[in-house]
Design a protein around this nucleic acid. Structure first.
Lengths: 354, 354
DNA sequence: AACCGACATCGAATCGATTTGATGCAGAGA
DNA sequence: TCTCTGCATCAAATCGATTCGATGTCGGTT
């Protein structure tokens, strides 16, 4: 009593009212005389009571106000990608004012995860957001379903009972591809996001290209094919990081018959390619054109601006936030697909005349 | 019953045992006959029961398994800094296996925050971590104290009842300063982290230098002073971002009597300075030396390696994780101060001979 | 045969709040 | 004066689990 923190019952006793009345004084849900409320609040202040314990409230209401965000990768890697960060910021900004908190659930260090994440199994959450392109055989997804937690999937494949939020990246890729083709390029190479857990690094064989597991590289490659691009090489990277783009750029630009244009599946990869080109003494875009994906502002490339396809990251976060809200009010929100916009920068131009 | 999810009581009824026995079957805390446990687990599987509801467990135990991390800034800005990310990754990696989740609590968009963050006020958490250098007058800190939530403060000022985790950045700054002085530099400029909520941009006046509110720039400046550096200019930036470093670099290196060395309070700022120097046609380190703080790997500067003072970011996260664990077992963990290590890269050298 | 201890199981209290339905009281209308 | 209405208040049930203390049963010891 003296040692532990005061409870609503203590406050009610001190104010000389019942627990229910004290509850009403805090929640305001129900009729209460102003004088009584004041008395309760005064007693609470005197006891240094900091408001109703959220645990009790949660048990009663069945709501925790927590949105679990499954990163599907280690934070270290995932959060070096501004794409994740900006979306998460948009999400947190939308959710915060609604009283929701974001619980980070990082992926396992071993890939594919051998054991289920204990947090997915046991953490309290009202809604889960898979921000990593979920697939149907995802073990985490199965667990969330069993627990009865509504799921929002970002850029994943369409799944039964899951709210989708996506971007038109296939269309965006096609636009980007058409832009590059329109400049007159014929020898075009592609630097892709990882195909699966293997996260290989190197030029992908036709066999490898036929077994792309993850949705995002598949869609973006398909979009480029739609544009009519027949790449001279498709280079797979282990993650969307500058250094992997650099490695790919060196590999693609060092050999004979180098491509005149390189299209990367992310701006981070593309910026690595630009850096590699510069290191090799190649001018961008005079000697080689480079295009990316996402539409980020990359200060270290300035004054160059990457040609890219912009996705509305903050809006993506906001859309997810609204979907969370809708799920909490018992609605089944519609799947949303956000459009992308071609951004022509300074890193693409006509191919060199030889 | 049929509509809502099954509870432990339903499982117990189906298995023909009491609720307490069913609880024992799941928790394993107490003697139970293997046959009985099997019966309960079978009944649970038949009912599609996914294990005890964490809300109920939490109310009883008073523990939520959630660690609140107060970012103290917008995610967007804060997470563009690899320092925060890597530390957060270390923290999440340590906490995850212990069954703790990380709840992100972003700072308000308006600065200083006019209203209290509702999450600080009401979110469930066992421990709060202030990763942004807390000051004594922090409103969030007061709220957390009132709620009786133990607080861990990273790189903040020493505060009553708060567990400190810090780095020896004052000492590190001194080592870095000695290194630069030892090379023979006399005209040294400093690019600092923001002094307070105002987040000004530009050369700081002596008056301004006397009223630094935030701990980190104050300590790092003090460390450089300890080394015997009397800077020709101290340039304050609004945030630790590449573009702000670039702005500062342009301002400091464009005028007459430019400094021969620039020391920045973060690697991100320092890398901006390097980029600015390159844009101005200055060679690093032949024309100007640049040093940073944190010891990050910045792929876009390669093959250059920034001279810097490394802090053990992953270890910092791990130390915080262990402090959380200690606080949960009722101990009062000792404050920890991690040491830094001078890393001499390729961006510092002797001053140009004129 | 009486007793004791170990062990499995159960009933009931507990955690801290919300919420429903009941109660009491005051003022208005007949 | 009696009743009816409306409002403030309260007692008790509820949310879903954990845990303490009690009960019952069985085997073994003296």
């Amino acid at each position: 009593m003296a040692s532990s923190r005061p409870t609503l019952a203590d406050v009610a006793a001190a104010a000389g009212v019942s627990v229910s009345t004290a509850s009403l004084a805090f929640s305001g849900a129900g009729p209460i005389a102003p004088s009584t409320r004041d008395r309760v609040l005064t007693a609470a202040a005197a006891l240094d009571y900091s408001g109703p314990n959220p645990l009790g409230r949660q048990l009663r209401s069945g709501r925790s106000g927590i949105v679990g965000v499954l990163i599907g990768d280690q934070l270290r890697r995932s959060f070096r990608d501004p794409v994740s960060i900006q979306m998460l910021d948009g999400l947190a900004s939308t959710l915060g004012p609604l009283g929701f908190g974001v619980l980070l659930i990082p992926g396992a260090a071993d890939e594919p995860p051998a054991h289920l994440d204990p947090l997915v199994e046991s953490a309290v959450m009202d809604v889960a957001v898979l921000i990593c392109g979920a697939t149907a055989d995802d073990a985490n997804l199965a667990t969330l379903r069993r627990r009865g937690i509504p799921v929002i999937s970002v850029e994943g494949e369409p799944l039964e009972g899951v709210t989708e939020v996506g971007i038109e990246d296939r269309v965006g890729a096609t636009e980007l591809g058409r832009h590059v083709l329109g400049l007159g390029h014929e020898r075009i190479a592609i630097v892709t996001l990882p195909f699966d857990w293997q996260r290989r690094s190197g030029v992908a064989s036709p066999a490898r290209l036929a077994e792309i597991r993850w949705e995002i590289p598949r869609r973006r490659l398909a979009g480029l094919t739609d544009a009519g691009i027949a790449p001279v090489a498709v280079y797979e990277t282990p993650a969307s990081l500058v250094e992997h783009g650099k490695t790919a750029g060196h590999a693609l630009l060092s050999g004979p018959d180098r491509p005149t244009a390189i299209i990367a599946h992310s701006d981070l990869l593309a910026s690595g390619v630009v850096l590699a080109a510069r290191e090799l003494g190649l001018r961008v875009p005079e000697d080689v054109s480079v295009a990316g994906f996402d539409g980020l502002d990359l200060p270290w490339l300035a004054p160059d601006v990457l040609t890219s396809v912009s996705q509305p990251l903050a809006e993506k976060g906001a859309v997810i936030g609204r979907a969370v809200q809708a799920l909490m009010s018992g609605e089944r929100p519609e799947p949303t697909t956000l459009s992308m916009a071609l951004r022509i920068g300074t890193t693409t131009g006509p191919p060199p005349t030889r």
